[in-house]
Design a binder for these strands. Structure first.
Lengths: 128, 128
DNA sequence: TCTTAATTAAGAATTTTTCTCAAGTCAAGA
DNA sequence: TCTTGACTTGAGAAAAATTCTTAATTAAGA
C-alpha cells in the first residue's frame, strides 16, 4: 500500500459526495501536490477491482466513486448532477424474475433514481 | 424532419440492440453513405430531448439509445457489454420512500441489472 | 418560386480515461 | 545494510467518446 493509495482511499472514504476522478484528484492534491491524475485513476481502478471501493458506472457519462461499499441506491439531480445515497430495502426474488424474462444470469442490480435535489427544487420554485 | 433524421429514427426503432451512436452510424451509413457521425449524435440528442427515443445514460461510460420509450428495465452483460430488455412490474410506492430517505424529489427511476448473457455464460462454462 | 431558418458534412476541438515508459520506491532475503 | 526484482509513480502522449464550428445545403412556409 503506497502512500498515494492510502491518501486516495482515505479522502474518498471521508467524502460523501461520490466524486469523479478529477474532483478527487483536486482534493488529494492538497495533501500530495505532486500526485498525477493518472495515479488517481489507476488506484481507483485497482481499489474498485479489489472490492474496497465502488465504481459508479451507471450515473452518466463520467465515472463516480463511492468509498461506501454497502449496498445502497443513488439519486442523481438532473439539474446539478449531484449524487446522494438512498437506503431502500432490497427487492426480493428479483433474480429469478429476470432470468425468466430475458435469459441473462443476474450478478447485481441497481435501483437508481433521477430527481431534483433540495437546492435545485427550491430554485425551480423561485423561477416559476 | 430531414431525411437523415427519418432514417436514424427508423433504424433505431427497428433495432432491438440498444446501439451506441457509433453502431447506429455504421448501420445508417449503409442507406446514407455520406452521413456524418456528428449528424447521428445531433439527431439522437434532439430525438431524446423530444421524448421520441430514450437515451440510456446509465449503462456504462458510453451512451446507448433505445427506440422503445415504454418503461422497461435493462440488463447489461459484464463480459461483452450487450444490453437486453427486461420487463418487470413497476415498484409501488417507491417515490415516497425515496423522499423520506434523502429529501430529493423523484422524477424517474431505473432498475437495471448486471449479469451474463446466454452466450458469455456458455463461454464461461466451457473455459472452466 | 423565394426566403430564411434549420440542418448538414467534415473536421477540429474538448472531455474523460487509459497507456507508455523512464525513474523511483518498497519489501524480503542475502 | 545492501541488492534485487517487482511494483508504482509522474508526466505526457494517446485513445475513445462526444460536442463544436463553419460554410454549404436543404426544408418548409409565404
Amino acid at each position: 500500500m503506497t502512500h498515494q493509495r492510502e491518501v486516495i482511499l482515505e479522502e474518498l472514504k471521508r467524502l460523501r459526495t461520490h466524486p469523479t476522478a478529477d474532483e478527487l484528484y483536486e482534493i488529494v492534491k492538497k495533501r500530495l501536490p505532486r500526485i498525477s491524475l493518472a495515479t488517481v485513476y489507476r488506484n481507483l481502478e485497482q481499489l474498485s477491482a479489489a472490492g474496497i471501493i465502488q465504481k459508479l458506472d451507471f450515473v452518466g457519462r463520467q465515472m463516480r466513486y463511492d468509498g461506501d461499499i454497502s449496498k445502497h441506491s443513488h439519486i442523481r439531480c438532473v439539474e446539478c448532477g449531484s449524487v446522494a445515497d438512498v437506503r431502500i430495502n432490497p427487492i426480493q426474488g428479483i433474480d429469478q424474475a429476470v432470468i425468466d424474462a430475458c435469459g441473462y444470469k443476474v450478478l447485481d442490480y441497481h435501483l437508481d433514481f433521477l430527481g431534483l435535489c433540495p437546492i435545485c427544487l427550491l430554485k425551480k420554485h423561485r423561477d416559476n
